[in-house]
Write a protein that binds this DNA or RNA. Structure first.
Lengths: 144, 144
DNA sequence: TAAAAGTCTATAGAATTAATAGAGTTATGT
DNA sequence: ACATAACTCTATTAATTCTATAGACTTTTA
């Protein structure tokens, strides 16, 4: 399961992507409308800003806004930022690789092979799932 | 990430499947050869027995052995047994369904739609990954 | 009938996740 | 200039889950 942090992050991003290029949005507004604890959300938005996805403006009339294009922000990136590796085994990730302590022979491990496949397929799906993709799917679903 | 419990379970199952129909295997032997803490393994094997995958024989010459055919035990089943749902979101599972508390409108949720896809693809892969499938892949990898 | 082997209950330590509190800093509009 | 709105940072805590261990008990069989 993904963490609440990731889920909150995605929801906030979709919310902000919907008002792309309409100026900064208050943290308090995002928190209220997306049902996210405000203090928790502050930390999340800050991480997204440090990752170069959002930017913020201080003072009166300030808030957070998207700086990447909605079609350039994908779910794999967001998940990695908050939950780390996407793979289900430490020995099948590129960036967070770690050997399984109990492993007898990694090179011929059939389990590893299976989860390698799961990881690849999952990353493929998550990479093509961008904010704009999500929003356009939502519009389609609403129309029916 | 999957839990160590699931990982240990899979390793123990593959180990037992390799000696299918050759009589009971000692817990202590599985623990030693697969590098699994023995007491922890005992609990795992018991769960697998209660799930109808293994059976045990007590007393001298006893131990655990596979009662399902190796081609009938798949990774989806094992993962669900120890880690619960395979899906990454509570709202996209069949057996463990739960609404996301913070969700504004589930019916038109684009995030849900994405993770639905991930879940379906993952379950497909895990279901076709049986013990015999894993073992035959391992044989292939060893030959090279 | 003793030893080998599985079964069961309880507990504890470690790690992670989720959430909150509060002080501090910065930018803005008037 | 300056009050205010808003973001930033550090600590702390509560809750949950995961991993592992201990020990007593029961069953089976040579």
């Amino acid at each position: 399961m993904i963490s609440k942090k990731t889920k909150y992050a995605i929801n906030a991003l979709v919310y902000l992507a919907r008002q792309h290029q309409q100026g900064p949005v208050l943290i308090s507004q995002i928190a209220r409308e997306q049902h996210i604890p405000q203090k928790f959300l502050e930390a999340i938005l800050l991480d997204l800003k440090n990752a170069g996805i959002l930017n913020s403006k201080k003072g009166r009339g300030g808030g957070y806004y998207l700086i990447k294009k909605p079609e350039e922000v994908n779910m794999a990136e967001v998940m990695r930022l908050f939950d780390g590796a996407i793979a289900l085994l430490p020995c099948v990730t590129h960036r967070y690789y770690e050997r399984c302590e109990e492993c007898v022979d990694e090179a011929s491990c059939g389990i590893r092979d299976v989860f390698q496949e799961v990881r690849n397929e999952t990353v493929n799906i998550l990479k093509r799932s961008t904010l704009s993709e999500i929003i356009s799917r939502e519009e389609q679903m609403k129309q029916r």
